Each structure stands twice: as structure tokens, then as C-alpha cells.
Computed example of a mutant assay.
Amino acid sequence: MDAKFVNPFIDAFMTVMPQIGFQDITRKKVSVKDKSAQSLGVTVLVGFTKQIRGNVAYNMSEETAKYIASTMMMGMPVDEFNDMAQSAISELSNMLTANAATNLATLGYDVDISTPSLSVGHNFVVKISSEQYLAIDMDLSGHRIEINISLQ
């Protein structure tokens, strides 16, 4: 995968997250991984089509997902990862991916994104790519979100 596809996702994260109430955002490490990712508890997969093909998987713990959902819902307590919280996380993945797609369009790529697919659980593996993919660890006020990107 071409490394030029990384910055549109980092920029999207750094643009969208402050708009929904997060201020302490840090990019940690970028690494190359092979084929599949072990779920951290909540994984949202979004596909790309047209000039760029592939997918992005947002991977986080259930605690992180509840923290994000609570912030998105103006601080409403989220004690369980119910339908409302799942909807918030799916919407966040839409916002992040649409922003990244817009960033890719400014680089001259015509792209479409799919509807997000949210999975919950610890004992599953998500196939990200048939080869290697890039993983970006982002820290959101002490909460880890792994952005797994495989685009061609």
C-alpha cells in the first residue's frame, strides 16, 4: 500500500474529533501489519471503491467506544454498548471516512465509501487485506483507537 494514503486519514481524525468534543488527540505509532487484525472489542469496517479500492477498519475497546459515544451524546452516561452507542460509533466512522475520502479527492482520486459494518466481540479476526496494511494508533484522551488502512 502506498504511504500517501495515510495522511488523509490522520488529517480526518485530527479534523473531525475536535468538532465532536475531543481536544487531547495524539498520533502514536504507524506500523505495517499482515492481513488480519485481532478485534480490540469493537471494530467498524468501511469499504472504498472506484479509483481506490480497499477498506479501513476502526478498532477499539468497548470502553473506548462507550467513552466516544458518551462524548458524542453531549456527556450522557453510556454504561453499556447498546444500540444507541453502536449507532454513534457507526456514525463516527462515517464522518471520519467521508472526511478522509474528501481528502483523497483533493489529491485527485475519485472514491466512494460503503456503509459501515460494526462488529462487537473479542474473539474474532478481521481480514483487512490479502497482503500487508498500515495501522495507525491514535490516542484520544488516553483511549486507543487503531485505524487499519488497506487501499490500492
Rank of each mutant, 00 (worst) to 15 (best):
N55G: 15
N55Y: 07
V56N: 08
V56Q: 10
S61R: 09
E62M: 15
E62A: 15
E63T: 13
E63A: 15
T64P: 15
A65R: 03
K66C: 14
Y67H: 14
Y67I: 12
I68C: 14
I68R: 10
T71W: 02
T71F: 06
M72L: 08
M73D: 08
M76C: 09
V78Q: 13
E80N: 13
F81R: 00
N82A: 13
D83M: 08
M84V: 14
Q86L: 04
A88W: 02
A88S: 14
A88C: 13
I89K: 03
I89Y: 02
I89R: 02
S90T: 03
L92K: 02
S93T: 12
M95N: 06
M95H: 02
L96P: 13
L96Y: 04
A100H: 09
T102I: 04
T102W: 00
L104Y: 04
A105D: 00
L107W: 02
L107P: 09
G108S: 00
G108W: 01
D110H: 10
D110C: 07
V111F: 02
V111Q: 01
V111D: 02
D112Q: 10
D112R: 06
I113F: 06
I113R: 00
S114V: 08
S114L: 06
S117D: 09
S117F: 12
L118K: 02
L118H: 02
L118P: 11
S119G: 12
V120S: 04
V120Q: 04
F124R: 05
V125G: 01
I128N: 01
I128M: 09
S129P: 11
S129D: 11
S129F: 06
L134S: 03
A135N: 06
A135P: 09
A135D: 01
A135H: 00
I136D: 02
D137R: 01
D137P: 10
D137G: 03
M138K: 01
D139E: 06
L140D: 03
S141I: 05
S141V: 02
